[in-house]
Amino acid sequence: MALKKRGRPQKESKALNKEVIIDNAKKLMISDGKIPSIRSLSAELNVDAMAIYYYFKNKSILLEELTTSLISEIYQPQKSLEWEVELRKLSKSYIALLSKYDGLLQTLLSMKSTSPANIFLFRFRIIVKKLHMNISVEDASLNLLTDYLHGFSISMSCDSTGKLTVDDIDEPLGVIFTGINASIINSRDKL
């Protein structure tokens, strides 16, 4: 059995860095079905836990960078497509990501940091910008959509039959989009 190197990594060692730690944390999330502990991550990397703390001050910072890296994988709007197509792609990629990394949603919802959520928010706003919504309609639309997506993600994780798939959000998204269109028309009529 190889001995783990203790303490701060040596300067000439390029094997361990933030990217390597984050990539291994993602792999552990897939294999273990949960957010990895520092202990399991250090065991996977064959380093002392203090080597991870050299790169991340504490577990909260590691979790923030890990979840931000994961959420960055969701659909990037193309701006050339219709808003409904873009929002459907964003929503499906988000559900697929939450399904792939079990425990990610619970971690996101319990975090104090908003950095990971801001990625979804920013991409949502890019998509709906062309609709010229007033801020209250935009915020209500965002809240409705994210609450639905989070609820659906929880349902998928509880579905022992495996019958629920990402494509099952198509029809409910159509209803949400109809509501967004109606809200836009209603708010313009009030002007």
Rank of each mutant, 00 (worst) to 15 (best):
K5D: 11
E84D: 03
I38Y: 11
L70F: 06
G179D: 00
Y101M: 08
L66R: 00
Q10A: 11
D147Y: 15
L108C: 00
D147C: 14
S157V: 14
G162P: 03
M50R: 15
D147S: 14
N24A: 15
E12R: 15
S31K: 06
Q78E: 04
K89L: 10
I184Y: 07
K129G: 13
P9I: 08
P36L: 02
K100S: 09
K190Y: 13
K18Y: 12
E44I: 05
K5V: 09
F152S: 15
K14V: 10
T114S: 08
V128A: 01
R188G: 13
E44Q: 04
D159E: 03
M1L: 11
I184R: 00
M133P: 14
D147M: 11
L131S: 06
K57C: 14
S183P: 08
Y75D: 08
V137C: 13
L28Q: 12
G174I: 12
S93D: 07
G151T: 07
E86A: 08
D32S: 14
A51W: 07
E171H: 09
M156S: 05
A140S: 12
H150D: 06
M1E: 09
I185D: 14
K100Y: 11
N17G: 02
S155E: 13
S80G: 10
S93Y: 05
D159Q: 01
S93V: 03
S91Y: 12
D102W: 02
F124S: 05
I184V: 05
Y55F: 14
W83H: 02
G33A: 09
K190P: 12
F120Q: 15
S72A: 08
P9G: 10
I35A: 10
A15G: 09
K79W: 06
E64F: 02
V175I: 11
D189F: 12
A140M: 04
C158I: 05
S42I: 07
D147R: 08
N46W: 02
F177L: 12
K26R: 00
I38F: 15
D167Q: 15
V128L: 06
F177E: 04
I185N: 15
N134G: 02
L144P: 09
E82T: 03
